[in-house]
């Protein structure tokens, strides 16, 4: 299918070089951070660590993992992500599908679209949110972390636009075959939408994985913090601890410091994303539209 001219070959080479350079520039900070996370604090404080750890130590990681809290927090984060992403995906699909219909087919469409866009722009702030959570009895519960933003409007809008861009024939053909709305959504639309679902699903996963603030706000008991909240608590007051008298911390400071602590925190939080990402990515690179119409 692709016949190659000389110009295209040159283009390909140049393209590869450019892309590689950009990727390299994106990769170096992460390598630098990785090196810092495994380095002794004296080298880090002296700014000598670049791309290879100096005075190799795993102290920063041990500090975070050493007690049972890490794994408990990890488990809660997984629980939150599975629940959160599942709810988000379901809500996005069932919201985006009706809203992708034209006004002729779904006269109330614009009203509901406005209903959602409004929430994107206006919010009531933390205080009433907290009061609501308390009155619903959700404080200290995992549901406080997954229910509030169950319809992420930006992602839903992306998904909706994907649905709209699908060729009309697919649905019409199915409708002629007598398929109902749910059937069409379930057996015709979903398979076609895999790449875009993977995209918005990824965004949702990343959101739930990275958010630490809601955990700190709504969990009364530190034993119920999700991972990022737990990691955050480890380091936010690191500097203040120094000011306090009589601390066991001081011997620890020889082996790690705020910078190495942050760096290891980043990786502990990043690992699951790096595991999930390539898995999800499989779906990005496979175009499916025509396949489903023909098949």
């Amino acid at each position: 299918m692709h016949f190659r001219t000389r110009g295209q070959k040159i283009f390909n080479v140049v393209n590869y070089i450019l892309v590689t350079l950009v990727c390299l520039s994106c990769l170096l900070p992460i390598i630098n951070t990785l090196a810092i996370s495994f380095s002794a604090p004296s080298y880090v404080a002296a700014g000598q660590v670049y791309f290879w750890p100096l005075g190799f130590t795993t102290q920063s990681y041990e500090f975070a993992i050493s007690n049972g809290k890490f794994f408990r927090a990890f488990g809660i984060a997984i629980e939150r992500c599975v629940l959160g992403v599942s709810i988000n995906l379901l809500m996005m699909i069932t919201t985006a599908y009706p809203l992708s219909k034209s006004k002729d087919k779904f006269p109330s469409r614009n009203f509901f679209m406005g209903f959602y866009v409004f929430t994107m722009l206006f919010g009531g702030g933390l205080v009433p949110w907290y009061i609501l959570m308390r009155n619903l009895g959700l404080l200290n519960s995992i549901w406080a972390l997954v229910l509030p933003l169950s319809v992420p409007v930006s992602s839903m809008a992306i998904l909706m636009n994907f649905m709209r861009s699908l060729p009309q024939e697919i649905e019409e053909a199915a409708a002629i075959d007598g398929a109902g709305n749910f059937r069409i959504l379930w057996s015709i639309m979903l398979p076609v939408l895999t790449p875009s679902l993977a995209t918005v699903g990824l965004f949702s996963f990343v959101y739930h994985w990275n958010d630490w603030f809601q955990g700190a706000l709504f969990m009364n008991n530190p034993n119920r913090y999700p991972l990022q909240t737990y990691l955050q608590t480890l380091l936010t007051n690191f500097r203040d601890l120094l000011r306090q008298s009589g601390s066991d911390y001081y011997s620890l400071l020889q082996r790690m410091n705020e910078q190495t602590g942050r760096a290891s925190q980043l990786f502990l939080g990043l690992v699951p994303i790096l595991v999930v990402y390539p898995f999800v990515q499989k779906y990005f690179t496979t175009g499916l539209v025509m396949g489903s119409v023909k098949g």
Binding site: L90, M91, T94, T95, Y97, P98, L99, K101, F106, P107, S108, R109, F112, F115, Y116, T119, F122, G123, G124, G125, V127, P128, W129, I131, L132, L136, L147, P148, L149, S150, V151, G180, N181, F182, L185
Partner: peptide, 25 residues
Amino acid sequence: EWLYLLMLLPGVVLTAIFSYGPLYG
């Protein structure tokens, strides 16, 4: 419309509670 409305219902309810509920703030 009813099928579409049915589909929208869960999302709308949750959004009404958690996004519109605190708006008085």
